[in-house]
Structure formats: structure tokens, C-alpha cells
Amino acid sequence: MTETDFLAYVQAGGQVEAGDWMPDEYRARLVKFVEMHANSELMGVLPEREWILRAPTLQRKLALTAKVQDEVGHAQLIYRVVEDLGKPRSQCLDDLLAGRAKFHNVFHYPTRSWGDVGVIAWLVDAAAIVSQKALLKCSYAPYARIMKKICWEESFHILHGRDVVLAMVTGTDEQRELVQEALDRWWGPLMQFHGTPIPRDDDQMYVWRIKSQGNEEARQQFLESYVPQVWELGLTLPDPKLRRGDDGVWEYTEPDWDELRTVVTGHGPRTLERLELRRRFLEQEAWVREAVA
């Protein structure tokens, strides 16, 4: 099979398995993409960890521990996919700590209040599930397969998040304000989440059918599903231009792409602090890994 044949095959909806031949470029792009996903699942638990203790009811505490458990479990599964493609997990984790590998923009920001916990579980996970559902059709079959389990679990996080938000918006004025304030802060990063609106045929991840949709399609899908829900709760979004056009396409203020670039290249407000926390404990407990090696 030549590279051209391979490209035609995946573009026609064909899928490949771990042992199949694949062009080097495809493998390299796949590793980078899947590794970033794994890193994001792992780094995604750090903004939530201290809120397990602060969770205001036993039910919320349990839901949050379940969510965190799902996410580290996803990281473990996804790193296995990367490993099968030829990059050892230890190298992925080293690259993550050294700032050589990326993780999603939303995990570089602080979690300031219980309102954030609701907004993250509801809308950050919603934005993520839009992307992940599109990966169910990924041309790399092992990744597409695990995405079924991941999407299923993520859908519970969204329900938990929506429930946290709902309890707060129907509660006291202070509780409602916590949600609104969190939403105002998270809206920028959420609009940046799916990436710049490059045409999908210029997006190499789409060309190789690693992704099955373009960035803007994903963002439109997110807006179409969730903006009406946010408004329905009487919450506002900090974008005066945000509206659904007569053609069904959502209009919005251009997201801050400079911010996205700055953040994902490791210069977000909490990037260093979170990597440092992991580094500190991994160093402190290096003897444990040696003891069990």
C-alpha cells in the first residue's frame, strides 16, 4: 500500500489496526494527538483535586471522586494506545513534565470556587464530548474503540455538572452569583477549546481522518447544544455578539487566539504550578518506582 492508497482508504471511512502498515506521517500525527488527549485527562484531575475535600455534600463528594477516577482511568487507557503506536508511557510522562508535550487549554486555568466545579463538569466536559464523539469514527480503530467507554463515562460527568449548576442557580443569590462569575471566566477558554476555525481540508488531523470533523463544526455543535441550556437557566454569557443566525449558524466575537497559543504552549495561569506539583511528588516518590521495578 502506498501513502496515496492509505489516504484514499482512510478518507473513504477505512480504519487501521495497531499492526497494520501506516505512513510515518500518519503515525507521528496520531501519536501527538492521542498523547495530548491522555495528558489532558491526567492534568484534568489537578484542577478538581482540592474540591473533593471542599465538596459541600456527601453526594457531590462521591460524584467528584468518581469523575476523577474515570479521568485517571481514561489517561491510563489512552496512554496504552500511544504505547502501542511506539511511544512508551514513561516518555510521554517525562515529556509532559518537561513541558515538551501539550495538554488542553482548559486545564491550565485556576479553579476558584464551587461554581467552577459545576461549570467545568458541565461545559468543559460538554465541549470535550463534542470532540470525543467525533473520534468514534477515528481512522485508527483502537482509539475509536476506547472512545466508546470514554464518551459513555463523560456523559455522566456532564449530568453531574449540570446538576451542580442547577442546584446553585435555584439556590441563594450568592450561589447563583458563584455560577455566573465562573461562567464569565470560563467562557473565553471554552470558545477557544475547539481551536482556530481553519477549513477542515487544511487540517491535517482531518485529512488523515484522525478527527472526523473540523474545529468550527465542533464549536458550532457545542454552541447549538449548550448555549440555549445556559440561557434557559437565566445565566448570561459574556459575549454581546453571541446569537444564532437565521441560517442556524452561531455568530460570536472572535475568540482570543493569542491567549490560546500562549496557554497551550505552557504559559497558562496555572501551567507551571500544576506541573510543579506533579514533579515534586514524582521526585519525592522516585524510590517507590525503583522499589517495585
Binding site: 491526567l42 492534568m43 484531575v45 483535586r49 471522586t65 506533579r278 515534586r280 511528588f281 518506582r289
Partner: peptide
């Protein structure tokens, strides 16, 4: 749960 995200190995996380 204090080990969330920082356990010595991913399996232990």
C-alpha cells in the same frame, strides 16, 4: 484522595 493526580504511578492514581 490527596494522591489524586500525583501518585507515584498511574496505576496507583
Amino acid at each position: 484522595s490527596e494522591w489524586t493526580g500525583i501518585a507515584p504511578t498511574l496505576e496507583e492514581d
